[in-house]
Design a protein around this nucleic acid. Structure first.
Length: 260
DNA sequence: ATGGTAGTGTTACTA
């Protein structure tokens, strides 16, 4: 089975690119982030016409997550237990959707950006990651053999090598020790990031501004964390860098994992 | 010189 994750930065703008990627790559299950639409605005027809099942959760023009699958999708869950809220009045955002495909529990995750270290959004980000860790720990405690994939846009670069110039990120989000610790805590909960060893030096995101892509000034922030039973099935991974090229590209590219 | 892009929906906000 081939599993992928991709922050598409608007599914309506990029539906043709997403379908072309699915066909070209032979991806069976794609976790999508930043659909940027409500459920009633999601382009269901072209996906269904191409033979894909879609589970989507979107509340507004912000965020929005989905699982797109060739195979049947079961047990769709919106948000995870304990997921923090945001805003006034406080409300859950469309940042997490769980769905089971062929016995694999796939969570499409769009971690809050954090904005700046002083912004309340930064603490929201840390709280969100801590709550996810707790929920994921609980899933594995309930079933140590569970095949769980926590995939998506984490908005954290786990290591200095995951940004083009660590010095340029001094005092910035995405690289701060608390954010990196929050991600590392997933390891303590039993999850392992499975794409790095197969994609050394790869970036998954390049800002639209300042010629970041032509200069290869990117970041690795799209990651796949697998439970032990799922990690044991991983045979390879790649980053579809070509998807960043040309007119109408997302600022993120797909990250693809092959499972035995 | 401290800019520059892209999305949504409206001229602001998010990234």
């Amino acid at each position: 089975m081939r599993l992928a994750t991709w922050n598409v930065n608007s599914v309506r703008t990029r539906v043709d690119r997403v379908l072309a990627f699915l066909e070209r790559s032979g991806t069976d299950v794609l976790a999508v982030q930043e659909t940027k639409c409500r459920d009633d605005q999601f382009p269901h027809l072209p996906f269904e016409a191409a033979g894909y099942h879609v589970a989507h959760h979107g509340l507004s023009q912000w965020n929005g997550v989905a699982v797109v699958s060739r195979l049947p999708v079961e047990d769709v869950e919106v948000g995870f237990p304990g997921m923090p809220t945001w805003g006034e009045p406080a409300a859950a955002e469309a940042r997490a959707l769980g769905a089971t495909v062929s016995g694999v529990r796939v969570w499409s995750l769009y971690v809050p950006n954090g904005r700046t270290l002083e912004d309340p959004h930064y603490q929201y980000k840390l709280d969100w990651l801590a709550a996810l860790r707790d929920a994921a720990h609980g899933w594995l405690a309930a079933d140590p053999a569970a095949q769980v994939a926590l995939v998506g846009d984490w908005n954290v670069a786990p290591r200095d090598e995951d940004v083009w110039d660590p010095a340029a990120f001094a005092g910035a989000t995405h690289v701060s020790p608390p954010e990196r610790a929050a991600l590392a805590a997933l390891g303590e909960a039993g999850f392992a990031e499975v794409t790095r060893e197969h994609t050394p030096g790869a970036y998954t995101y390049w800002d639209y501004q300042r010629l970041r892509f032509p200069r290869n000034e990117g970041m690795r922030i799209d990651l796949v964390h697998a439970s032990p039973a799922l990690a044991a099935r991983v045979t390879g991974a790649h980053v579809d860098r070509a998807e960043r090229k040309g007119k109408g590209a997302s600022d993120h590219v797909p990250v693809v994992v092959d499972l035995a």
